[in-house]
Every structure is written in structure tokens, then in C-alpha cells.
Simulated assay, not measured.
Amino acid sequence: MSIQISTDKSILDVDFIHQFLTRSYWAKGRTREEVQTSIEHCLCFGVYLEGKQIGFARMLTDYVVFGYLMDVFIIEEQRGKGYSKQLMKAITEHSDLQHVKRWMLATHDAHGLYTQFGFKEIEYPSRWMSKLIS
């Protein structure tokens, strides 16, 4: 079956996205309001199969210097069908992102997917810093 990938925020199913994220290891406990706010401030990609949303990703970016890819997922029952690769292809080839110089993401278990799209471990991790507010 063929999927559709859209950046139209008006058709995103925010409840669906929230329900998935709140069960994920990286967004456990995120409120629906926080999910809505994050969508409003990012370039978002909805993944649809026969009109029903089955996946999502968002890119926080200034469209020139930096882009941070987050909340990438395909629901469990639709995995293994190549949909995540199609989603990543759509993101990396999106016309608005072609001038972004540095792309970042964090993953616990999907290194194999992201390396296919040019991502690699940070070359000089000691140069990077973070601040986590729990």
C-alpha cells in the first residue's frame, strides 16, 4: 500500500500523536498541550495510510544553519514495511530544508535507519553541551 506524507498541520491528528508520544521512551509524560505547542513551532510531517495517520516527525529549524529532527515514529503495527524510510526520504529531500547546514537528532535504537540518510555519531562530542530541565 502507498502512504501519503504531508506537512499540512491542519490534518494532523494531535490526539493520536500525543497518545503515541506519551508511551514512548523519549516523550513519556508530555502533555497534549506540550505536543500541540511543539507542533505549532516546527515543520511537521504526518504519515497517512488510507487517510488514517500512522506516523509523524517534526523538524525544529531556522531553515539555514540548524535543524533538529524529533519525535519520528511509525506506529508499531505498520513497521517493517519501509514507511520510516519513505518518511526520512521526504524529510531529507523537503525543499525548505535544502539549505540547512547541520542536522541533529537523538536516538536510542534507530541508528541503522538514520545512517542510511547520512547521519553519523558526533565527531567531536566534547564540543557539544546540553542543558536538561526535567
Results as ranks from 00 to 15, higher is better:
S134W: 01
L132I: 10
T107Y: 01
L113K: 01
T92P: 15
E123N: 09
P125V: 04
L105K: 05
L87C: 07
I91P: 08
L132Q: 14
I91R: 00
Y114G: 09
Q116D: 15
L97H: 06
L105M: 05
Q86C: 10
D109Q: 00
E93W: 01
L113F: 09
I91D: 08
E123W: 07
Q78H: 14
T115H: 14
Q78W: 14
P125S: 11
L113C: 07
W103I: 01
Y114W: 03
H111G: 13
A90D: 05
L105E: 07
I133F: 12
Q78M: 08
Y124C: 07
S126N: 14
Y114M: 06
S84I: 09
G112V: 13
H99Q: 10
I133K: 00
G118D: 05
A106F: 07
H99A: 07
P125E: 08
G80C: 04
K89R: 11
H108A: 15
M104N: 03
R102V: 08
Q86W: 03
L97W: 02
F117M: 00
W128Y: 15
Y124V: 10
G112K: 00
G112W: 05
Q98D: 03
E123V: 15
F119C: 01
P125C: 04
I122C: 12
Q86R: 05
H108P: 02
S95I: 06
H99C: 12
E121F: 01
E123I: 12
A106V: 05
M104V: 14
K85Y: 13
S126V: 12
M88Y: 04
E93I: 03
E121P: 07
M129F: 09
T92E: 14
Y83P: 04
L87T: 07
L97Y: 00
I91W: 04
L105P: 15
G112H: 06
A90Q: 00
H99I: 03
I91N: 08
